[in-house]
Design a protein around this nucleic acid. Structure first.
Lengths: 310, 310
DNA sequence: ACTCTTGTTTAGTATTGCTGATGAATTAAA
DNA sequence: TTTAATTCATCAGCAATACTAAACAAGAGT
């Protein structure tokens, strides 16, 4: 009875059911599972035969859940969550000594990757695999032990822990501080190209050039002109190349500021924003000792840079 | 990540794994799943390929769980419990108006079945399916909404509720109360066949003829002679046929005592025993309104007979 | 050493699952 | 209203998976 000897529903059909129920679409479910819609249709029908009752109301265009489906779905979901987690645990011995992190691309390149050597030095026998993923689709996460995300830290069924705050400030190549158009005060920006970082677009607290200039009562500089980039690292690299002045994320720029490849022309230019960097992982996930060690190390590094950097 | 898009382990292989892990035997797992041991072996190997690590330590004779298996097993179990329950819920609409009860055979025949007409009369549109099962294997339970078990009411992962106490007392055909060997006192039993019920064998509190006679200081009657039956109902029917005097379970004999087909020759003959009848069902199980109604009715009936019967 | 039990392996077979084409039903646009 | 697009259903054929049967290997018990 509690025993799986029970006439269990066909397991693979349950996968199709779960996907179709989540998406409310056979086509999308098919897409997700990399099969044709026909396959989904057949699997669902098989499950309906088992149930003895329909699970979806077919309304021509889209598809709705019946009560039976509605009622059983949460349990099916929980079951798959556990199976997924069980799978990871089984694989744990094979993954020993390996920490896999999915990370926002710019942060991975400019903050995390440069520090990895240090981690490897202090944690012998543990290697870190970094995967720079944009969308942070479930898929990208699938193989990672945890992710580092840029955002507000509130995620659906996930646990998260603040890693680092982010601030925004103007940066440019040191070359721009010299010569006839040397940047001394905000007004001097009128002679230079403004580089725009649109990667923080959905953060209302993140200033763009227009609002930054406005806050400093600089009226005669058009804050809208200049090229736009959808990745923080692109703005940084453009600025470092001397292309212009970027309103850049501190965490991403920090290494280049420290090395002198970039400079911050204004003393009071930086603004703390709402978004930050977060360690994120699924709620029920078992974190191995190696993973915990890596997390601890990252947090320590973050605490360091937070003091030194700003 | 929480998403089943994760590279899930092969689901059918998980079933084999769960069974093999529970039994610590591929052969028994094969038996349970109605396949050959070879099939189990292959499924396990497939899962080990997925895990990248062995799940069993093969020690020639038997098999042991590795750490990876040990660690993931609880989650796999929980997953299957949920899947099993989800399956039932899916089937609920198809089962509407039907309550399936698995019941100890004698109790089913002599106590439950005769009262079912009354239930059907008062609960229109709900039909009860009774399955009389001995072993109460998980398999028998598989399709039942709940079971009625005879025992002490303590079951592994199951919930239970006391239905009825049981008492044991001598009964016989009314014919034996007449004639030259009429039974008036315990001593008179010497002239009659003693019928033995061995169905309560593993209940130490349940008296047999020897202990019953001993308690009444009847020394010259051999309590060991006479036929033995492994089912309460067989003893009752033998007694009703005039074969002899049975030390019978009250609940099973009650209807025949009420109708006069059986009589209790001694006023003080009955002994309350530890075992009783219990409603039992799996912990996480969702009980439908129909099932709840049936349970309520059975308990009411039990409360009735408890008063009238003893 | 012999036997019994249990897991493994392999080739062949059965079952299950998927595709790709076609059809029907519904919605949205022309 | 027609037309086009989208979505699910169905079916025959093919592919992948799961299972069997039989022969093998390796303890454990006699």
């Amino acid at each position: 009875m509690t025993d799986p000897t029970d006439r269990l529903p066909p397991l693979n059909a349950l996968r199709a059911f779960e996907a179709a129920a989540r998406r409310l679409s056979f086509t999308q479910a098919a897409d997700e599972l990399n099969v044709t819609p026909g396959a989904i249709s057949q699997q669902i029908r098989q499950l309906e035969d088992y149930a003895g009752t329909p699970l979806f109301k077919r309304t021509g265009r889209s598809v709705l859940l019946t009560d039976a489906a509605q009622a059983s779905l949460p349990l099916v979901r929980e079951a798959f969550e556990r199976i997924s987690e069980a799978g990871r645990i089984m694989q744990a011995p094979a993954r020993k000594g390996r920490v896999m992190v999915s990370c926002a691309p710019s942060f991975a390149a400019k903050w995390l990757a440069p520090k990895l050597g240090e981690f490897h030095r202090t944690h012998d026998g543990v290697e870190a695999w970094i995967s720079a993923d944009m969308g942070l689709t479930d898929f990208a996460m699938a193989d990672a032990d945890f992710t580092i995300r840029y955002g507000r830290g509130q995620y659906d069924g996930l646990k998260s822990e603040k890693l680092l705050d982010e601030t925004v400030l103007p940066v440019c190549s040191p070359a721009l501080l010299e010569g006839p158009d040397a940047i001394k005060r905000p007004e001097d920006l009128r002679h230079h190209t403004l580089l725009h970082d649109e990667s923080g677009e959905n953060d209302p607290s993140c200033p763009d050039w227009t609002s930054w200039l406005h806050a400093r009562h600089v009226e005669d500089v058009d804050g809208t002109r200049g090229p736009r980039f959808n990745q923080a690292i692109l703005v940084i690299e453009s600025a470092a190349a001397g292309r212009g002045v970027a309103l850049a994320k501190q965490a991403i720029a920090a290494a280049d500021l420290a090395s002198g490849r970039l400079v911050a022309p204004f003393a009071d230019g930086s603004t703390l924003i709402d978004f930050g960097y977060w360690l994120v992982w699924p709620k029920g996930r078992h974190l191995s000792p190696d993973v915990r060690a890596f997390m601890k190390w990252v947090k320590a590094e973050a605490a360091n840079t937070a003091v030194v950097g700003v």
